[in-house]
Each structure stands twice: as structure tokens, then as C-alpha cells.
Design a protein around this nucleic acid. Sequence first.
RNA 1: GGAUCGGUAGUUCAGCUGGUUAGAAUGCUGCCCUGUCACGGCAGAGGUCGCGGGUUCGAGUCCCGUCCGGUCCGCCA
Length: 598
Amino acid sequence: MLRTHTCGELRITNVSQTVTISGWVQGVRDKGALLWIDLRDRYGITQITIETDKADQQIIDTARLLGREFVISVTGKVTERYSKSDKIETGDIEITPHTIVVLNTSITPPFTIEDQTDGGDELRMKYRYLDLRRNPVRQNLELRHRMAIETRLFLDKLNFMEVETPVLIKSTPEGARDFVVPSRMNPGEFYALPQSPQTFKQLLMVGGFDRYYQIVKCFRDEDLRADRQPEFTQIDCEMAFIEQEDILNTFEALTRHLFKTVKGIDIPELSRMTYADAMQQYGNDKPDIRFEMKFVELKNLTLGSGSPLLWQGAGGEAFKVFNDAQLVVGICAKGASEYSRKQLDELTEFVKRPQIGATGLVYARYNTDGTIKSSVDKFFNEQDLKNWATAFNAQPGDLMLIMAGEINKTRKALSELRLEMGNRLGLRDKNKFSAHWVIDFPMFEFNEEANRWFAMHHPFTSPKPEDLNLLNSGNLEGLGGVCANAYDLVINGVEIGGGSIRIHDKELQSKIFSILGFTKEDAQAQFGFLMNAFEFGAPPHGGIAFGFDRLCSLFGGADGIRDFIAFPKNNSGRDVMIDSPSLISQEQLNELNLIVKG
RNA sequence: GGAUCGGUAGUUCAGCUGGUUAGAAUGCUGCCCUGUCACGGCAGAGGUCGCGGGUUCGAGUCCCGUCCGGUCCGCCA
């Protein structure tokens, strides 16, 4: 061993021991008569002190030649510091060296190896191995390691068995684009990398492994985001002989276990919300419920209430925007009535951005003096506005923000505005966690472009038994009303996990494929192995998968997942460190029977 | 496929309505300093302003194109 201790473990109790420590030179402070070296490794920093009137000339000469990130080994005596530091754990001691050995030199790093580095993202990625030496990145990966360990401990105790599934599998048409791998031995044919081990874990259920999990890489060839990488990691789970309730309880327990053991937080029991409620109350299937600000539907709410809102002002002029809208819906921002004209204009600009695409925003300030001032005073009298306030349960000091239009678009836009207001009002504290289930997802969604139904979750999802008649009615129109035994785990507005009870019956599976537009032959060619397996006593089963990178970044209080992955890819799917993807040689192409166009 | 922000010293950035020799901080190099720990002080080196074209007497600055990066929409069963 080139060390007896790490750079993070020596304390006052080690004083007078002779030790050897090795690491990287964080920095040298040369005060002439006194010279300090900060020596760093994964575990911490230990100070080496050299008094130039006492030390060997050779040690002084060596020390003065050191640069940042030189790798050295120091043997010397642990001594109590004359002036201690409370900033590092080893701050009470220092090493008086007998020998300093330079194990390797270093050229000057392109950025500073400090918590607050001067390096930008691109540079950090190019020199990721230097970035990994920094505390924040290392701590993120330590967190990730801890999460993985705790997940395994928890699931192992419940008899879950980790089984590896293949990475070279078959391309399927549904879902995300596949990454494909040409097969040299089978010219013209391709493997695909798994988007998830979905069918394999179901086959493991048929194989009798009634509790399976795997912390597993998955691959999707889709455009990237701060929280989406082309290769990412899932905690993938499946159970047999269970019902939806069992999955929810088991993985709620896993979630709470991770919060407890990794963050030291006891989170309350997870609430549950149907998909329909989530969409109606938050305009979003993964609502951030750290704060309320629920949607209030003005049009429907007041119908038949005895005091319908007048969409026609006192002057008799109709407010066309509301009159023509399918949906008039708003949120109440508590305590925001002081918003200036400028701030309100900003919000209007925000919702009119092309990404959100709203045409406008109506506001009504409930002033602290009890009056209400709106942007549509021309159309509505004081009593109208008071009625709004009642509907919003608004108090003086609140700000009502209202949007109108086509149902889905308006909900989506207001959802964005709600999150923006949550940010502006400081309601989205990264240290506060609010986890819940969204359940009862629709089985299908209609895609206008393709003019057909798609599986909202995936085609192996089981419909709710009570909706089977809708499914069998042969009436395609009714498919939108079929609910699935599918569920998502949402934490702080982030979709952390999703799963479903699966189909384990060949006939039903076959039926679903046919609804999704597969011919019998296609279904057999693509998924015959699964349907055949179902004929050999497939047990009822279901499962869930957690986005492990996202879970780690959420625990780490970050927005993106890149800094929780040792070697991530950039927005364009490139690894700028190894410079991949890259061209391959003509020989390789020939061997693979591939021709690259243009 | 689309929107938007950015690209200036090794690095992170500033650079006004176009106008002398493009600045700061940090890093780097040298010298000084006996208790520093983001040490301090003094001095110094370091830039084809992403690339190409255009407008102009004159472009880091304005326009067009292009490449690269960030964020988002579409997409992600």
C-alpha cells in the first residue's frame, strides 16, 4: 500500500504517529519560511506543513516544484496544528513530512478542482475525470451508490431476486425509437437495445420467479432533456400473485425506506389521485402537490348553482373569449395581489410563448381593501368579480389568473402557469418532498396524426375488469373511457415511477394488439413468444419501474440528472470526452454488411 | 422538426445607441512574506472576439448563413 491512512481520517488522536498518505495536490501555499500543501483524496484533505528552516532541503525543493493535481505520497509525523481550522475534519492536525515522493506530475487542469469550479459544463464534460475529483460530483455519485445499496437491501429482504436480462434484444414498433445493433453473423439483421426489460420480466414471472428486480440500463433513441439521457437506469420490478394494491404498498414502502435511510426523512403516507382528477385539478398527469393552487373551473362550477356567472357585462357587451371557450379555468395565487402591471405582463408573455401557446391571460386582483380589479372590467361588474372570488375561495390580497379555450390545451397552459407561479412564490422548495400516486390512467389515447389508438402505458397493461365490456363492445369511440390498472409515482412534480398490472391471458393480449392496429400475423411475429408463454400457466402479475437517475437527482436537490451519472452524454447524445458516436472503418461496415448513405 | 438563450484571455464573464491600443476576476509564471487554509503583496505573460459572407469610411457590436453548447416544445408505449 502506498498509504497507511486516507486524507480524510487523521484526527487529534493520531498525533505523534508516523503515517503515509497519498493523494492529489489541491494547492500549495508558500509563505517563504512556511509552506503548506493541501493533499486531497476521495475522503478529504490533509495539510502538510514544511518549516523551511528545519526541513530537509530536498523536501523543500520537491514541495516548491509541485503543481496542482500532482500525485504525491507523503510520509511523516502527525502533529497538532498551531492554528487549527474548523472548515475541514482534519483541521486539528497536520503532517510534518520526512519524505515526499512525486508519484506522478500533472499539467495544469483546464478548470479549478473546487466545489465552485470556474469550469463551464462543456469543459467539465470533456474532462469528466477531473470533474469527478470535485466534491459535489463525487457526493452525487456517493448518493447514487447509497440509493442502489438501500434499494437492494430493501428488496432482498422482501424476497425479490435480481436477475439480469439481455441487452441485445429485438426491435419493436411501439413506443420509443430503438437503438439498433447490426448483427455480423446475421447479415442485414439487427438487435435492438431494450427500452426496458418489460417482456423479459413478464417471462420471468411465467418462469416462476415471482419477485424480480433489476437495477438496469435502458436505452431510448429520443431527443434529450436535462432529465433525459439516451441510456438511463431503472429500478425495474415485477411481482406475481398480486393485485395493484400490493404493488402500490410495496413500492410506497421502498420509497419511504429510501427517504428514511438516505435522506433521514419520514415522509407521510402517499396520497392517491386519479388521472382524471389530476388533469382536472392540475392540468397535468404528474402534478407538483407541494403547493395547492388547484384549478377552479368557472364555467361548469357555476352552472345550476343558482347564481350563474354572467359572461355578459353590465354594459351588455359579451366577453367573446369566455363565451366561446370550451373551458374557463383559473388558479388563485395567494398573496400575489400586489403584482405590478409589469409582472402581470410578464405572466401574459410567459403563457403566450410558443412552447405554451396560450392566446392570453385574464387576471383579477383581489385588493387588500376588498375591491377587485380585473383586466376585463369592461365586461364584468363588481358582483361578477365577487362571484369569481367566491369560486376561487380567494381572500383579499390574492391574485386570480384565468385562462380560456379548448379543454386540453387550456389545462396544459394553465398547468405551466401554475408551476411558474409556484416558482415565483417560492412554493417549490427543493428540501420539501411531496410524493403521491396517480392511478386509473386511461388505457388508450387517440393519436390524430396516425388516426389510431395507442397504449398510454404499454400494450401489456391490463384494463380494469369493470371496463372490459367497453373494450368488447366493438365500439372504438368508447375506448377513450377504458381505464387501465396503471399507476405512476410522482414526487415534486417529477414522474419517478410507473407501472401496471399486466395482461396474463393470451386472448386478452391478442385483443389489445388488434385494437392497437396489429394484424394477427404482426402480433405473432413481434410478441408471439410472450403470448405463447401465456398459454403455459402464466400467473397474474404486475410491476413498476423507477427512473433511478431522476430519483437520485431529486434526492440530491438538482434539476438535471447529468451530474448523477459518472459519464453522461450531452443534449445531442454525444459523449464529448470520448467523442462518440463516431465513424467506423469501411472494413467494419463491410463486415456488418452496411452501407452508409451520403 | 421547432422556439429561445449563449459562443470574447487557460477558465468564468463584462464590453453602452458601431468609433483610438478589447477589460475584470480567477488560473498560470517569477519575486517577496513564520501560521496559512479561497493566504496576502508586487510584477509579468496570455485574445484570428466560433466560422463564412454582407452592410459601413469603420464591425466583438448591425444583417444573413453555418457550426457548437444550454433550456424548452414536439417526441419520450
